[in-house]
Write a protein that binds this DNA or RNA. Structure first.
Lengths: 239, 239
DNA sequence: CCAAAAGTGTTCGTGATACACCCATGT
DNA sequence: ACATGGGTGTATCACGAACACTTTTGG
């Protein structure tokens, strides 16, 4: 049962058969210079021309929704293997102007260093915005973004997912600043060190920072195998 | 744009225009005699005749999804004002045998005492099952149930929602047993008392149990206004 | 009397918090 | 010398865990 479908926003013809009342929209988080950022895309055509929104798209008939979310992000960023979690479905009957469309929200955490290398879109089409400087977005995308921020704040305290936003090798202060930024709190450096090191989740790389105008800090990395092992022993990440 | 639609499971004609690729399925939790239970319904017709599944249905064109979930539960149980939260969308391309249908999972917490009074279905069509004795369900409903259990275990530790499963007036031991059952742990009575009372969330009703063959316990109730007030002051429910 | 659950008291250890202080490195 | 961040030490306090013990009520 092949269908010819029209993208309701851009007017563009959608080739492959997709589910025409459900979309996916993803909130892609990045962390750069102490700020939490979100990747937004500019709508080139259709009613909301020029306005920014979350990256998203349609679900193909034969693919799962997680699969679709991954595919859409790969098409946009060139990145595979992205940390991606479903938020929930948003289904206000009036959220979408051109018909009844329910969207399934996702949020992703990426390392900005990776994104820079393999960007699939040009700068004019996609741009990082600091979460404190998000403009008016199309449809209900501001609501989805707000919800995902709440969700991120909860999740980051209960699972070691914050590392996904940092480079492979990071210092303890970088990690702390990440938590401070996401949770919107101030933390005590000495106490943070002890707390995170006590968990024994981090691998000391026996390397130090270079080219810094102060005492170089040790570099660490997060080891997921260790985390899995600890979890099986009953360890519970709590922050 | 009115459509004539067929309920893909039962073959029944669906009168009002609904979204035909999305359903809602709800996990309704109850708590009775120390056991956590789930409300299941028997499928009377269609391929899965005789098999049990989660209560669910279609979303109407002009209603929101939370609204639809509430309506469906009202139709089933006669209950309004139910505690209801969205879980997430389930969208495996093969989850539904007769076509591509994505379902949005919800979970609800009800007081069994209320349910008993206003039941809308007969016993042969709907039945409470202990969570440890769930049979094979239709489609991916076992998966949805399992996921909602995980979710309930998380949520119950971070928000005061457990009370929703208990009668208006309850004893501290009942509350403790609720937590023990949901979380699957054993707790220390004295310590539990102090912990929950220290939060000052409960109102001492100055009433006691009656007709019990041991020292009667004080009755308490949960006061949501107090909780809101404390929350605004920075209080955070943690268990 | 006993059984069963209600309810209080006390001890111990761990971890969160606050903060003083020294170390290393570039300008 | 001093600014900047790295890193250690320590006192205090609250809370969770464990458990001994007293109280109330029905049978």
């Amino acid at each position: 049962m092949k269908k010819a479908l029209i993208n309701m926003d851009s007017g563009e013809l959608v080739e492959t058969p997709v589910m025409n009342s459900i979309t996916i929209d993803s909130v892609v988080f990045g962390f750069e210079k102490g700020s939490l950022e979100v990747l937004l895309v500019k709508h080139a055509e259709g009613i909301s021309k020029g306005k920014w929104g979350l990256p998203g798209g349609w679900i193909k008939q034969e693919e799962g929704i997680d699969e679709a979310a991954h595919r859409l992000l790969r098409e946009l960023t060139g990145l595979d293997q992205i940390y991606l979690e479903q938020l929930k479905a948003f289904g206000d009957p009036n959220r979408f102007p051109n018909g009844r469309v329910i969207t399934i929200g996702y949020y992703a955490l990426v390392k900005r260093e990776d994104y820079r290398i393999k960007a699939g879109f040009t700068a004019s089409e996609a741009k990082w915005y600091k979460v404190r400087e998000i403009p008016d977005l199309i449809y209900d995308h501001n609501e989805i973004l707000e919800y995902s921020l709440q969700n991120l704040r909860n999740r980051v305290r209960q699972a070691p997912i914050g590392f996904t936003l940092l480079p492979e090798k990071f210092t303890l202060l970088q990690l702390m600043q990440l938590y401070e930024e996401i949770l919107g709190v101030e933390m005590d450096k000495p106490n943070f060190r002890r707390k995170i090191l006590r968990m024994k989740l981090l691998v000391d790389l026996n390397e130090k920072q270079k080219d810094v105008s102060h005492r170089a800090a040790k570099l660490y990395k997060f080891d997921n195998d260790i985390y899995q092992k600890l979890t099986r022993k009953g360890f519970n990440f709590e922050f």
